[in-house]
Write a protein that binds this DNA or RNA. Structure first.
Lengths: 152, 152
DNA sequence: TGACTCATGTCAATATTCTGACATACAGTG
DNA sequence: CACTGTATGTCAGAATATTGACATGAGTCA
């Protein structure tokens, strides 16, 4: 049926499957977070801050897979809403270490529960061993793509 | 260092790793397609049409993980540039079956080669067996997320 | 036949993100 | 000390995608 004359066959392409899985995950997260009035990036930011307090804007951006400009806009909003706090002046360099406020921690709690449910659903059909394998495989893919020995 | 007091640990979360891998893949594809003046969605559209000629705008949108409105804008551009063609009137219903033109096929050839290199790089550290496992795992994740038995 | 539902194509407006740019702060090097 | 390179925060404009809305065509069912 499919004419695999040349190149990437979408039916069997791991790249395409990866995008498909990621897209499904994102859609599920958006839906899970919608009733909480929270976006995926918003959640990601709070979760990062919960696990690694004091992260800077740039570090949060990298961890959330957006530009530091986008993260900056979000942080300003969250600061205004009282979910995070940043010192008026940087303790060193230019980086402003960000902290979660009690309100932010509270907002995160609900979101974490919702997102965890999504992750559980995603892994429903996989054995523990398969999950371990998935961990290793995804890490390997990321690592292989990171070192840009393509021609730079 | 990381306080895994509650919930999703980003260090070990398969959801986070999935996003990370997908993000790395996308970045690599953007970079690979940039010298060809082609976006990822543009490439995805052409590749889909190559493997399944006659796909409609909506079908292309779903296959490329964007809205049909976004795909429509792209198709109008590609039609103007002569990479794809659509009949003036729908043969049945409202769907307009889209075809790749020779120019489109030519543009796709270069892009496919570039993207294939990226995929090869991504899979460099994985054995054939691991790749088969990855295929099954990613498929399972997508399937598990698709059936929304969460509460709807 | 008529009413209802669903999918599609398309236009417009909104939202979101990214790219470009600039000033600042620190580390390394001559 | 001065210079260079790298990283950061931030502002502004541009590009991109999304949501909302409407009309059309096909299938279902009473």
């Amino acid at each position: 049926m499919s004419q695999d004359s040349a190149g990437v066959n979408l039916e069997t392409s791991l790249g395409y499957l990866l995008k498909q899985a990621s897209s499904s995950l994102r859609a599920a997260m958006v839906e899970a977070l919608r009733p909480l009035g929270m976006t995926v990036t918003h959640y990601s930011c709070l979760e990062l801050l919960s696990q690694r307090p004091g992260l800077s804007n740039s570090e949060l951006a990298r961890g959330s897979f957006v530009t530091r400009q986008s993260m900056n806009v979000l942080l300003q909003t969250l600061e205004r809403e009282g979910q995070v706090s940043r010192p008026a002046e940087p303790p060193a360099g230019r980086a402003l270490p960000t902290q979660l406020t009690p309100a932010g921690r509270e907002a995160l709690a609900e979101a974490t529960a919702a997102v965890r449910q999504v992750e559980v659903q995603m892994l429903a059909g996989l054995t523990d061993e398969e999950q371990s394998t998935a961990f290793r495989i995804l890490q390997s893919m990321t690592d292989s793509l990171r070192d840009d020995s393509t021609g730079a």
